[in-house]
Every structure is written in C-alpha cells, then in structure tokens.
Design a protein around this nucleic acid. Structure first.
Ligand SMILES: [Mn+2]
Ligand SMILES: [Mn+2]
Ligand SMILES: [Zn+2]
Ligand SMILES: [Zn+2]
Lengths: 141, 141
DNA sequence: TCTCAGATTAGATATATTCCAAATAGTTCA
DNA sequence: TGAACTATTTGGAATATATCTAATCTGAGA
C-alpha cells in the first residue's frame, strides 16, 4: 500500500489524513512485528512530523475503531498493534510475550445455540506456548 | 471441589495452602464471572482472613503459573481471572469488555510447518462482538 | 479567505501492576 | 519442643500503561 492508498483508506472511514495519523499507519504497515504504543510513539518521533504521546494513543484508538489496525492484548504487558494486512491468527509466547503471526485458516464456529443473543463480529484463534527463541533457551538448560 | 481438594491441588503443585491463597482460589471457584484482581482483592477482604493488595496479586500470579487459574487479557482493561473448571473458550464484548464462557470444542491445529520451532501448549478461540446486554442496548436506539 | 469541527499538544491524572525490605508464619529436623 | 530455614505476607513506594483536559492549531469545504 502506497501513500495515496493509506490516505484513501483513512478518508473512506471519515478520518482526516493528518501527518501524525499517517505516520502511525505507515509505521505499523512497514513492521512485521507488533509494536506497542510506546514503540510507535518513539518511532514516529524519530522522523518528522513529530507527534505527542496523547496523539499517538488517540490515533491508535481511532485506527482500531476504524478497523484498519488490530489491537492485541497481552497479559501483564502493553497492548500491541498490527496493521491489518492479510487475515491471520496469532501466537503469543508465555515467557516473553512476543506476538507472532500464524497463517490464516478457517476455524469451525460454535453451535449458534452456544452464542445466545450475542452478536459475534469475529472469531480469532490464539496459540500459546513458547516462541522459537524461548523454546531453545528452555531446552538448553 | 471442597476445601480439602483445593488444599491438595495447591500442595501438589508445591504451593503452601495459606489462608490468603486459599481465599483467592475459593473465591474464583465460586464465581461464574471473571473477576479482576481488584475485585478479588475486595472480595477476599470482605471476609477473614484479610489479604493485602500485593498478596492478592502475588497469589493470582502463582496460581496462574501453577495452571490452576487462567488469566484473560482484555484490551484497555484490567486482566480477568478464571479458576479453570471445565475447558472452555471465551467471548469478549467489544463495548463493555465483559468476558463470558463459551462451551469448549476442539480447534484444528495449523500445519506444523506454520508453527516452526515454536512449542504450542494450547490453542484457544476468542469470540468478539457484543454481549447480549450491549447488543440489546445497541439495537434499541 | 473564512469557518469550525476535527486534530494536536504538554502536562496532569487515573488505573493497573510490580517492587521492596521488614515482619510473620509454616515446615523440617535435631 | 524449639531452633533454623524458607515461603509468604504486608504497607507503601515505585513503575508502567493509558486517558483526560483545556488551550491551541489545522485543513477541507463553503
Ligand atoms: Mn499480527
Ligand atoms: Mn472463563
Ligand atoms: Zn518467547
Ligand atoms: Zn457488553
């Protein structure tokens, strides 16, 4: 996605394409990792235009609401963000909290009777265990 | 599970059965909701023995490590805890953050090639959307 | 060019969680 | 039993994370 495409995707969702908001979106898109808000804030401020902490948080919130960015909560750690590219699942490391992508595959939905009056928007799978690095570290002791 | 059973399950995992730790475990087991650490702290302190905030957090951490309690991270909100009864999945409300149980069903694991050198301990499904209450509230406007 | 809702800002504030060092309470074993 | 050892508890301080506030700025459309 190039600059124009980012601009368009923001405006389609009623968000102005401000330099700060653009910078957050562009940064997240070029990462394959899952940056925290603090990392995003720092990265955006290494280049112009600068952005305040509040604006970084505001923009992350707005982008999540608009469906352009996914937020991943990790127990005991800061939330991580992910510019929705192709659909995928996540692996979260029990030891270091690292979030990694796992190729998408269709998951069987539960019986609708089990969902009652709830409205289900999505259905994600989270794999847990040890990332490659932590698994290695663990076995070599 | 009665008192003796709780005591045994703690000791099997090398944890002393202290009054504070027991109280946390017993409280979580009698809830069908998913209390936060703050709610647990408050509940435990409505009855004897009392427990400090640090001890409540310590015990929740120890119980999670021991595999007796599950921690559920919710974006932008305090973590929630769940005394592992029967295996189940979770539904998390986009609006109010409520965590609800969904009957367990087996999920297909991804191709092992997609997991590389990771060690996968578990594979959970999280449903997202609006809980019954928020769905009602939403449609009646 | 004017207007104004949307956006940004620095700093204060709120919330959630962990750390710390001293005191206490179980457990083991002489 | 009771000394010795260790796990646990404690209150308060400290840290981490996230949101709020009120003043100011910006840019898209009229
Ligand atoms: Mn991802
Ligand atoms: Mn549950
Ligand atoms: Zn790891
Ligand atoms: Zn709800």
């Amino acid at each position: 996605m190039d600059g124009e495409a980012i601009k368009r995707s923001l405006e389609e969702r009623g968000l102005r394409c401000t330099p700060q908001r653009y910078a957050v979106m562009a940064f997240l898109m070029e990462q394959n990792s899952h940056p925290t808000a603090a990392e995003t804030f720092e990265a955006v401020n290494r280049v112009d235009p600068r952005s305040s902490r509040a604006t970084t948080y505001n923009n992350l919130r707005d982008l999540v609401k608009a469906g352009l960015v996914r937020e991943v909560a990790v127990e005991g750690r800061a939330a991580r963000y992910d510019a929705q590219g192709v659909r995928h699942h996540h692996f979260i490391c029990d030891r270091c909290g690292e979030v990694e992508d796992v190729d998408w595959y269709e998951v069987r939905k539960p019986a609708s009777r089990a969902l009652g009056k709830r409205y289900v928007r999505e259905c994600e799978v989270i794999f847990r265990g040890l990332c490659a690095r932590c698994a290695r570290r663990r076995s070599s002791r």
